[in-house]
Write a protein that binds this DNA or RNA. Sequence first.
DNA 1: TGCGCCATGTAAATTGTTACATGATTTA
DNA 2: TAAATCATGTAACAATTTACATGGCGCA
Lengths: 179, 179
Amino acid sequence: MSLRYALLGIISKKPVSGYEVVSIFKEQVVYFWNSTHSQIYTELHKLEKEELLEHELIIQNSLPNKKIYTITELGKKELINWILNHSVKPAKIKDEFLIKAAAFDILTIDEIITLLDEVIAREERILSMTKEWKEHFTKETSKQNLGAIITSEYGIRYAEMYVNWCKWVKEFISSNPPV
Amino acid sequence: MSLRYALLGIISKKPVSGYEVVSIFKEQVVYFWNSTHSQIYTELHKLEKEELLEHELIIQNSLPNKKIYTITELGKKELINWILNHSVKPAKIKDEFLIKAAAFDILTIDEIITLLDEVIAREERILSMTKEWKEHFTKETSKQNLGAIITSEYGIRYAEMYVNWCKWVKEFISSNPPV
DNA sequence: TGCGCCATGTAAATTGTTACATGATTTA
DNA sequence: TAAATCATGTAACAATTTACATGGCGCA
């Protein structure tokens, strides 16, 4: 149900195609919302039926045709109304690694260290990518990228927190080894 | 699909009823996995059919009867196998507030501040609760609560990161006000 | 010649949420 | 006397993921 507002928010900044929305999701939105192209295209159709979006078909010669979506006045009203009046719940997280961490009691120290090191490497990769993104947004000082700057800052802080927590766990288990 | 491993992990520490599993989810697991009682009871039935769990019915006089679940040898093998061999993906997050943050461009400073202050208050409440939980687990120095200690530490760090990010956004928008 | 990018969609399967259903005991 | 706790389940609905489906262009 909130996916629609993520889409409206993206399209409110500038008209984009469904394909571009999908790539914005992969690059910028992953840090706080997950979705796939199949869900996004379907939701875009629904939003258009409800007249919150409209599209213009762009005929391309060498590339496939595309639909450029624009937010309607009604869509903008709906978006602002949701932002101001819908009270949000805490984030819903699904983190497989933390499920493993919760069961570290049954592993050996070496097994735990191996798992932690993999995740540290992964999060450090994500961290450096996110830093590049933030720099990119910060350079273009347009009024319309406040959202991108603050959410990428969130992504950076999240990844840093994750890495530091992993390192803390490594220290913790060396002074409090499991069975 | 990963829910089952969260359940196996919980029950591997000590035999518990479905009801207790649900309350452990609410208290300790919220920080990294979300589920509801209806899904948990259903999954428990499946795990039993697959012989990864078994239960003993406890007849109670003044309270409703309950089923105490125990992990089987097969269940333990499955759990350890998943932990060691299934490569995990980064967390999937659904954070409605970040969807709002991504669209802060279209709000006034006052509106943004109001939204941020609500979330700061919420996360500070969660933070103090989580700190109490961690203290609680740290006091009982059993070998079987390593998981609870490190995941509650994660919860603390996550909430602290969230609050600090919100405060950073407040500062950021006062020096870079939106339209 | 195979892969990735561009570009859009539908169908099937799985997961997850909300509502329905019951009911005694304890606590405020 | 109303709400919370204990205790378990199913049904209906909504959301999400994975697979199916197509196809040209550019690059290595």
